[in-house]
Design a protein around this nucleic acid. Structure first.
Lengths: 211, 211
DNA sequence: GTCTATAGATTGATAGAC
DNA sequence: GTCTATCAATCTATAGAC
């Protein structure tokens, strides 16, 4: 971004995003990234210090704005409930968190690869990926969790905790399935709006299921 | 198993299972496995041909019996519904599939590592792992899906498909979270019975949520 | 069946010319 | 900022003695 002749930096980020999402962080080599980007092998180390520096910027570039949007939406739900001197509604909280994620999915080709990468971060065995991801997403999860707990005040903490895991696990899985090419039988490119609606119907019912 | 002096073969399987589950297939080296097993580096190639041969046996050793149990339970649900000339009940189908998985989780220390490995297989970027896993689990999924569809005859196919993904994604996530050490705040070693009950309550409600 | 030794390939990272 | 060339450290897999 300083005085680069060509925008190698951005091309590296784009290609790394695609390959990290498609093949995973560890199976993606710097050689594959630089070759795809038409850049030199040494460029990654020059621009990002090391491989994990590249990963960090790949994640931050997309996740910071996405998190901002999520927080804005969640805070709006909270504010609305306070104004009405009531509690947040489960459906609204779910939507505030889910909708930005999947709207984001449509914002460009690279975005889909990024969503795959993030969807896998939950179960990522490698500490590098999970560490970078969790650090960024932790506070937003906290807000999401708190608001959802307010919407379900009578639920035992233990039950709530696991139900939240159900919702998050399904979301991570859907991020994969709805963006990846290697899931057969899903060629029906699902409408984002419909998918979000289905998610909310389903998990609002699950969250409020009788014990 | 043929005429081995010591049971190197079993020790290799046990250690590979633990390390594959903990660190992932690709990040686990044959050196780490053989060192942990107290065996020679060449032992893996002698006993299993190659690294992926070891992985295949690690998965098959546990998954084949588990799948048998699942099929037995699912067929029992189907048979009961036929006898009563009715439809299978959603809760019964869910239980027949989920309960064996989590009972299995308690069958020993190695089993927990295996469950982590399987839970991650859904989002595994590496074709080796996903291929071996999906081939074994595909037919059981088919049976599970068909039975669940019978229990929900009026649901549009597209909606059903995604709701099934919600259930499977959450299951994969829970397999991780409930077995892995790196998920803080879950030290409360959850009772398997309770977890299964929570899952069924939740997903029976979600599956049957109004459109 | 188990061992040592090593081949053969690939990786992340760096030094230094331009 | 970009390049070539290369290092040093890995890795899987195999050959061959015992």
């Amino acid at each position: 971004m300083k005085q680069g002749e060509k925008n190698t930096r951005k091309r590296l980020l784009d290609c790394a995003e695609k390959l990290f999402g498609r093949d995973g962080y560890h199976c993606t080599t710097l050689r594959a990234i630089t070759k795809k980007a038409g850049a030199n092998l040494a460029a990654v180390n020059y621009h990002f210090g090391a491989k994990d520096g590249l990963l960090k910027e790949v994640i931050e570039r997309r996740l910071l704005p996405l998190n901002e949007e999520r927080i804005k939406r969640l805070e709006a739900v909270r504010a609305a409930s306070v104004n009405k001197k009531g509690r947040p509604v489960v459906e609204d909280v779910l939507r505030a968190f889910i909708e930005p994620t999947f709207s984001f999915r449509d914002s460009g080709e690279g975005a889909r690869d990024f969503i795959i990468l993030v969807g896998r971060s939950f179960s990522e065995p490698d500490g590098t990926v999970r560490g970078i991801f969790m650090q960024l997403v932790g506070p937003v999860f906290e807000l999401y969790s708190n608001l959802l707990a307010q919407a379900l005040p009578d639920m035992p903490k233990e039950v709530f905790r696991w139900r939240l895991h159900f919702a998050i696990g399904a979301m991570a899985h859907i991020m994969h399935v709805s963006c990846s090419d290697c899931h057969e039988g899903l060629k029906t490119a699902i409408n984002t709006e419909d998918l979000v609606a289905m998610y909310i119907d389903f998990f609002a019912a699950g969250m409020q299921a009788p014990l």
